[in-house]
Structures are given as C-alpha cells and as structure tokens.
Design a binder for these strands. Structure first.
Lengths: 148, 148
DNA sequence: CTAGGTGCAAAAGGTTTGCGGTTAA
DNA sequence: TTAACCGCAAACCTTTTGCACCTAG
C-alpha cells in the first residue's frame, strides 16, 4: 500500500547513479534518499525508517538498511560514526568534518578550509570546542610495503 | 581460583588513582590494567578478556567491561571508536590521534604536533594516508547560549 | 561487618541474514 | 519472464543489567 500525497521534487541524480551500477530505482530507494535530502540532520537508520514510513507505511527496517547501504555504495550518502551510538547518515557529499554537541547530542557539518590555519581555529562562530580527534585512514607502513 | 605465575611489575599509579575515587584495587582491575599496559595495540573488550583470562581463568566479560569502565572514569584509559567495530581501549593518555589501516585493520597512535603544519602532513614516514576526518566536540551554538 | 565487586545468565540495542513472495525492466 | 528487491522474523554481536555470592577495608 502506497500512501498518496503530493511529494517533494524527485531526488536528483539518484536514478542515473543506480542505473550506472545496474541497480533499480525502486520506490523505497527513492523515498530513503528523499528523506536524507529533506532534513540534513544526520538521522540514524531508525529515524530514517520513521520518516520514510510516513510516505511508505509498509517499508521495513531491513529495507531501510538495504537502501542506505545501496546509497552509500553509489556514493550518494556517507555514514557517520560517533562513540557507541547508532550509525548516522549524511547526504552532504562535499568534503567536511563534524562537530558533536556534548549537551544535546546534535551533529553539525563543519566545512574546514584545509589551506588555512588549524582545525580548532576554523569553527563557525558560536561553537565552543572542548576537544577534537583526528581519524586518519589509509595504509600502515607494513601494508603499504606489501602492496607494491 | 587465581593462577600463580611470576607477574610483570604492578601497574603504576593504579591503586592510588582508585583510592582517590574511593574504589578498591581488586585483582581483576589490576590485571585488566596490566593487560592494557603490556601490549598497546588497542585491544577490544573481548581481546582484553582473552588476555586477562590467561592469568585469571575465572574472570568474566561483565567484569572486564566493569573494570574497563572504571579505568576510563579514573582517567587511566581511553576508549577508541572506529566505524561499526567494537570499542577499543588505549592506555596511552598523552594527546594523540589515530591512524586506521584500511588493509589490516590495525590502529596506530599518531602524535601530531598541533603547532606545526596540517595534520595530513604530520604522519610518520611509511604511512600512506587515504583520508582523514576530524571529530570536534563541545557545545553547539544553541547549547552554549543556554549554558550562560 | 558491609559496601563495593564479581560472575553468571538474561536482556537490550543496533545490524545482518535467510527466505518466500513481489516488482521493475 | 525473471533477476533484483522487499518484508518479515530470526540470528548475531557488542554491551548492559539484575541478582546472589564474595571480599577488601
């Protein structure tokens, strides 16, 4: 059963991206992507589920997880991890970092300009930084050597 | 039942730190801390459990979690989170960041000098960086305002 | 003696999987 | 028509909790 109300504009680029990977543009994938574009507050899978359900009452958690995973693999969405909490999803694909509020738990995108100054100096006005931690990834010396 | 073999030197500072918080220096807490000092490869709770069990065959997972939590609250150990994996534990309390190897999954401490240059430039020789992400924390503008 | 700790087993998130039925191309 | 996808329920993994027993001060 598909609820019928006037829906916001179709997510741009989705169908082509899916097709390029040989995947189908299903109603559920469109809706999950739409949810992520509509309110960019880094919802968890469960929050995506709740929001998607308003349009597609029969959607399941498993499908939400599947769709999110598909979107991540298509390069349309990124996962955001923080502490032990649930994985959160982010449809802002431009390079940025994150600020986690110790008080309310909110997650904010921080667009640092890597050309200038130190990260702790580059926060927008109003944020009060308590600390930061950099997570590098790539190849460790041992694996880098093995690779060539 | 306590296995009796000659043990490495007692963990320094532990008993005093515990006492300062009104906590008891139990055999299990000493052993868990010893494990973390002995091999600083950021073991998960399960890995700590396995290593601690070699000396204390009757120790339980719940106790390992309790002890790790106690050590964290005493400021002797830090938690390290990465992706969806299990929480890892780190006994290096000096300020540092981390490098995660995409190939072998290893976690390495990176001591960046915040006075000089950009983080991506400050990796020790041999590491090949693919990306990095900065996780700030503190108070967001809304919560910072409420606090005063 | 007794508050604080331990070990066990069960429960609680969050996420993944297996499978029969459904749907887009 | 049929491979890809969905919904359901059960499994899984990590972590937390409740509770009876134990132990350090």
């Amino acid at each position: 059963m598909k609820k019928q109300v006037n829906q916001p504009a179709l997510p741009p680029g989705l169908d082509e991206r899916l097709a390029r990977s040989g995947l189908r543009p299903t109603t559920q994938r469109r809706q999950v992507y739409r949810v992520l574009l509509q309110k960019r507050d880094h919802p968890s899978a469960e929050e995506v589920f709740i929001r998607a359900k308003q349009e597609l009452p029969d959607i399941s958690m498993a499908t939400v997880y599947n769709c999110l995973d598909t979107l991540v693999r298509c390069g349309l969405v990124k996962q955001v991890h923080h502490d032990r909490g649930a994985t959160r999803y982010c449809s802002n694909m431009s390079e940025h970092h994150h600020f986690y509020c110790d008080e309310c738990g909110g997650t904010y995108d921080i667009t640092t300009d890597p050309e200038e100054g130190h990260p702790e100096m580059r926060l927008p006005p109003g944020f009060r930084m308590r600390g930061y931690e950099i997570a590098f990834n790539g190849l460790c010396p041992a694996c880098a050597t093995k690779k060539r």
